[in-house]
Design a protein around this nucleic acid. Structure first.
Length: 130
DNA sequence: GTAATGACCAATA
DNA sequence: CTATTGGCCATTA
């Protein structure tokens, strides 16, 4: 009992759900790979430990194979830095800057300011001064 | 079959 | 600040 590996259906479903979530990130905001992983439903056959360890990486893999309608550039790593090597690095940064996202001297985004916060249902939350 | 590597992350050194 | 490591999957060579 208890497979550890994903079948083809699991992988396809996972990628699809990842793309659906990423599409909801508004312009001018970013999300982290780990954040996306935590918002996607864990594949049935995958252990909790495994998903915790590799979920974020699988999100990255899903980004590498996404279509044009997915704003992949709004996904960065937990340090607020761009994880892509090569040409994609420049493209991602330019796209984000054109949306108003700021980078510091070390190429990092202040996640306190620019990270996508999922709206909480209930009482209106007080807004923090920028 | 083995071995290396990956658009990650949190904890350490 | 940078570098390394455990996690222990999926893909590719």
């Amino acid at each position: 009992m208890g497979f550890r590996t994903m079948n083809t259906t699991d992988k396809a479903k996972f990628n699809s759900e990842v793309w659906t979530v990423v599409k909801q990130i508004p312009s001018g905001k970013v999300a982290t790979y780990g954040q996306i992983a935590s918002m996607v439903k864990k594949p049935e056959n995958v252990e909790d430990n495994s998903f915790r360890a590799f979920g974020p990486r699988w999100v990255g893999t899903a980004m590498a194979t996404c279509t044009e309608d997915v704003p992949w550039h709004r996904v960065v790593n937990s340090q607020g830095r761009i994880s892509i090597r090569g040409e994609g690095t420049t493209v991602q940064r330019e796209r984000l800057e054109s949306e108003g996202v700021k980078f510091d001297e070390q190429g990092r985004i202040n996640l306190k300011v620019f990270q996508w916060q999922v709206p909480i249902s209930g009482p209106i939350q007080p807004e923090l001064p920028l």
